[in-house]
């Protein structure tokens, strides 16, 4: 078990980071090169002003009509995504590990806050799962991959929560936490989780066309 711990906490961390960063760069480069070749107009119509205008209306809660039409979904989505991104970067255990390995480190969340945020992510995943199953249109769209992704996202938070609270088998939970976190990172460039990277580009392009070409709002 010690060997697995070493592997998951050492080599695999690096591997996951390299695959995540490399995969993201390669995929974006492929998209840019393909766009240059087949959708060259995209570059001509792209406008930073209108892209930003559109992005802002979609990253500020309730700034778009659709967000106002679905208040519960909007609230859960925003809180979920914030916790999902902030918690791993600012969890005390993560920052301390980094500080011990390389020195430095940065501000970190109080444990109680990280605890609540972790639980929020888990509950968010449960909410999305229930929504996926219970809403007819979402169920119709859902593929096996969508359910698996939910599990992949929930796993590092669930195992992290488990190991932090030192419930029985927490040593194993710690290893699962590291492995599942690495899996999550690796999955980003190769699955629908890539929406995290593509969001500003697709939204920005829609905003550019609506604002620059069509003088209309897209929110």
């Amino acid at each position: 078990m010690h060997a697995i711990y070493e592997l998951a906490g050492g080599f695999l961390v690096w591997a996951a980071l390299v695959i995540f960063a490399g995969g993201t760069v390669i995929r974006m480069a492929w998209l840019a090169a393909t766009a240059r070749k087949k959708d060259a107009a995209v570059f001509h119509y792209f406008s930073f002003y209108y892209a930003l205008r559109s992005i802002l209306h979609w990253i500020v809660p309730f700034a778009s009509r659709n967000m106002r039409l679905h208040p519960v979904m909007t609230a859960v989505t925003f809180i979920f995504h914030l916790c999902l991104i902030i918690t791993p970067i600012f969890a005390a255990a993560h920052v301390i590990l980094i500080a011990e390995s390389w020195g430095g480190g940065w501000w970190y969340l109080p444990d109680a806050a990280a605890d609540i945020m972790t639980l929020t992510v888990i509950l968010g995943c449960v909410f999305f799962l229930i929504r996926r199953i219970s809403k007819k249109d979402v169920r119709y769209l859902s593929t096996a991959g969508d359910y698996i992704l939910l599990v992949i996202v929930a796993a590092p938070f669930l195992s992290g929560y488990w190991s932090y609270h030192q419930w029985s088998g927490f040593e194993i939970a710690g290893i699962v936490h590291m492995l599942s976190g690495e899996l999550l990172l690796i999955c980003i460039p190769f699955t629908r989780l890539f929406h995290m990277i593509l969001f500003p580009f697709t939204r920005g392009y829609a905003g550019s066309e609506f604002g620059g070409m069509r003088s209309a709002r897209d929110w």
Partner: peptide, 12 residues
Amino acid sequence: ARLSAYINTCVH
């Protein structure tokens, strides 16, 4: 790229 980005970004 648009086709690919649209199809793969959709989170259903």
